[in-house]
Design a protein around this nucleic acid. Structure first.
Lengths: 211, 211
DNA sequence: TAGATTGTTAATCGATTAACAATC
DNA sequence: TAGATTGTTAATCGATTAACAATC
């Protein structure tokens, strides 16, 4: 009986970088790639790569490695990147515009179908091909376009009130780029992308390096 | 003998969110804030907040909590956010522009003093107040402006070659927003900000939620 | 005083790493 | 065959959580 392997968040976070390496190997015409090679490329331990790849269910051959095509397929499916994630962008500023045009996401199933902004000068224009609507249209568009995900890139002071609008529209998953901890009911998925925490780690490293 | 408390990366990553909560408390005129309150706000365990705050060296009072002003000062200093980090932005696209205008970073010591882009139409213009120069000027400007940090927001295919230019210019720390694992000599600090790994976690959560 | 909160020490949990037989 | 790599089982490491005395 096939049991679902338990996968940890750290493992999930590493999978996209594996995917990237394996895609490069495929472009070079390789049919197999070893965990050792992937590990070298990313400066990880080989055992960690093997453990991570185990969750895909693909088995490798000793001395040869893992089959590239199968691995790409299995990782993509594991990440649910073979499905389209129908998304809206809320807050059409620079960050939102950057995300709308980020090829990496588009290639992996994220489809931003509409953007929203409170600035009437932006309404009716397009950012990276995505039309910008007033916030009032969120409810209507979410239903019409069968949206499952909202990418939140409004200024932080508006994060919570905008979230209320999204919840009212029936949104079940929010990718939160603000530095506000959103208050949402149980069952709503919130993924917080915290640039400040990255800056904190970097800053501490630099400070330690100075001494 | 005062020993430097060991601090883990997870702890450092949580400090900015504590700072945010404590700043809000200060604005409300509060002189003390308890770990319990911070934990509630962020949906963390109180014991985790107390452990994390211990690295600042500030001690709290039972029943009352931690002194807000001292805590803000200690966290800011711990993160080295009281020093100015002189930075350049390499790649003046939408993401770079967003980072240049991100008030959160400016408020906490990151000072972007110049931007660079290979697109000659951008050269001479300003993004969020930062002047854009051709890449050829990097070496000169890094010396002139005493830059210690480069924020890398070029398209991924140019990430490694741009890094070589930065290294040649004497840059010792790179904040890498591309999805390329940069090859750098030992001693160079690279902080990778990986949006794809966030998307991976989100995507898996959504997929699990559908079942 | 009563009791909420701190801070220390110990226990638990989970992720990473090590060891090594199996095998291509 | 020889030996590099896989995959499993066990050991280690480090982070989180629990327990609880001290105390404001």
């Amino acid at each position: 009986m096939a049991r679902v392997k338990i996968s940890s968040v750290p493992t999930i976070r590493r999978l996209p970088s594996y995917l990237h390496i394996i895609e490069a190997a495929q472009k070079e015409g390789k049919d197999f790639i070893s965990g050792t090679v992937i590990a070298e490329e990313l400066e990880l331990e080989p055992i960690q790569v093997r453990k991570d790849l185990a969750i895909t269910g693909i088995s490798g051959k000793p001395r040869i490695g893992f089959p590239v095509a199968e691995l790409l397929d299995a990782i993509t499916k594991f990440l649910d990147w073979h499905h389209t994630h129908r998304a809206i962008l809320v807050g059409a500023g620079n960050l939102g515009t950057a995300l709308a045009g980020y090829a990496e996401f588009n290639r992996h199933g994220m489809s931003i179908l509409a953007a929203f902004d409170s600035d009437s000068r932006k309404q009716g224009t397009r950012i990276n091909g995505v039309e910008v609507f007033p916030l009032e249209k969120i409810g209507e568009k979410v239903k019409e376009l069968e949206i499952e995900l909202a990418v939140l890139t409004v200024p932080s002071p508006y994060a919570q009130e905008t979230t209320e609008v999204l919840l009212a529209a029936g949104i079940k998953a929010i990718w939160n780029f603000t530095n506000i901890k959103l208050k949402v009911p149980k069952g709503i998925i919130v993924q917080k992308e915290d640039l400040s925490s990255g800056y904190a780690v970097l800053s501490v490293k630099i400070a330690r390096n100075r001494n």
